[in-house]
């Protein structure tokens, strides 16, 4: 009854988006920003390895890079908490975004997380309010802002880094209001229905482009990004560079106005 890809095809994308060998924030940084200088800490209580950040250059300009890092093997994954950030991680993101604004550096964020960390300590530290204030900081920036969904864009913990002038998605990444498993558990009362949920939620890059939520899909080599880190990084770099040059044509206030208009239109119904 609908013109949809079969859910098996959608699930294949979900699996690729989560593939342990898929390039992650630090892989892209290594390939695209050889002069990367990491900056750490939220200046309040901690440094959260689930979000990494720092400065580098792109097309001759200094840029601020902020992204979730999942880790490839178990040891790395434990260190980076599977890319699930705590409030200190989002505070670090806020701090780096403000630093970028102060020195007129564009902000590029990389999204790759199943979601914000659902732990007691994170809740007690104000996970929800910290995500809200991160969105607020990004909303107030006047420097060019770009984000790319690298693998998994999971819920509020993902969008917290993606209120940006331009939003890109890798071809085999997903971006969703809830994990397919979580949605299946609630609506189907059966987490085995995750593939059906992924289909219904419309989580693929094509879906999000059609819904007007993202600006561009970055194609991956045919076998998938996990088989070709360098080639994928090249494509991502090219897209970011082109986007940056476009955004630089606009004045700071114009960028902010257009970004504001874009988000105020989200989901607005034609009437």
């Amino acid at each position: 009854m609908r013109e949809r890809q079969p859910s098996a095809a959608v699930w294949k994308v979900v699996e690729r988006a989560r593939h342990p060998q898929r390039p992650q924030t630090l892989d892209y940084i290594e390939h695209i920003f050889p002069d990367f200088q990491e900056l750490r800490g939220d200046r309040v209580s901690a440094d959260d390895p689930a979000i990494v950040g720092g400065m580098g250059s792109l097309a001759g300009r200094s840029v601020m890079l902020i992204g979730q890092q999942k880790g490839h093997d178990l040891k790395q994954r434990q260190r980076h908490n599977f890319g699930m950030a705590r409030p200190e991680g989002y505070r670090k993101a806020q701090r780096l975004a403000r630093l970028a604004e102060k020195f007129h550096m564009p902000v590029i964020s990389f999204v790759d997380t199943p979601g914000a960390f659902p732990g007691a300590d994170a809740e007690e530290g104000g996970q929800a309010g910290t995500i809200a204030r991160t969105l607020q900081v990004f909303s107030g920036l006047t420097v060019p802002t770009l984000s790319a969904i690298l693998g998994e864009g999971g819920s509020g913990g993902a969008v917290a880094l993606a209120l940006t002038d331009r939003v890109y998605m890798l071809e085999n990444s997903i971006y969703s209001v809830i994990t397919p498993e979580g949605c299946a558990a609630i609506l189907w009362r059966d987490s085995a229905e995750a593939a059906s949920a992924a289909d219904a939620l419309r989580v693929t890059a094509q879906d999000l482009l059609a819904l007007g939520v993202i600006d561009e899909i970055i194609p991956e080599p045919r076998k998938g990004a996990h088989k070709a880190h360098r080639a994928t990084a090249k494509k991502l770099a090219r897209a970011l560079e082109a986007g940056l040059l476009e955004l630089e044509e606009l004045s700071p206030s114009e960028r902010r106005r257009l970004r504001r208009e874009k988000y105020l239109e989200m989901g607005r119904l034609a009437s």
Binding site: L163, V177, V203
Partner: peptide
């Protein structure tokens, strides 16, 4: 929280309401 049945469009109401508060 967000309304699952509107998928990503409901997630986008988070940035939208934050921008409105500006």
């Amino acid at each position: 929280g967000a309304r699952m049945q509107e998928g990503i469009l409901s997630l986008m109401q988070m940035p939208k309401t934050v921008v409105a508060l500006d």
